[in-house]
Amino acid sequence: MDEPVRETAGAYVFHSRPRCALSQGQERRVFWTLAAGAFGIALGFSALGYWLVLPFAGLEVGLLAWAFDALRAREGNYETLTIEGDAVVLEWRKEDGCGRRELNRRWVRIESDCSAPGRHCRISVCSHGCGTEVGQYLNDEARLQLAATLRSRLQV
């Protein structure tokens, strides 16, 4: 489940991945159980002529599908940021593949696009005109806290 965090003296390692206690198969079973229940009841009432239950069941199952899809998309993802000496190393795996970026600590800056939680805050590690988003699996508050921590860590 948890990937180990390798520590070396004086290094700062941030490792994050989405929490996934359910396997894909289990997720599918849960989703279809919920969807079958909601649709079964709605179809029963529709058969009796009270069809307006059906669109609401559809909307609800749509929301459920979005939620489970979002969970599934995160499985296997991770991101690691290591600050050691002058090196800042970013490693990640997302839905679209893996990546690695090695930066010079002195040129790195942290950018965040909002100051308050609840507004889909994003924080990026930027260098040489190119930014890499970090803290994607955190909530907004923790993301802002990470930004502050990284800024203090990167001060030379």
Partner: peptide, 24 residues
Amino acid sequence: MSDVAHAHGHDEHGHHAHPTGLMR
């Protein structure tokens, strides 16, 4: 949400401004 692990050399909690009042 995530599992997060930090290895820290010293105080790791940077301070950021939490919104206060109604906005919080």
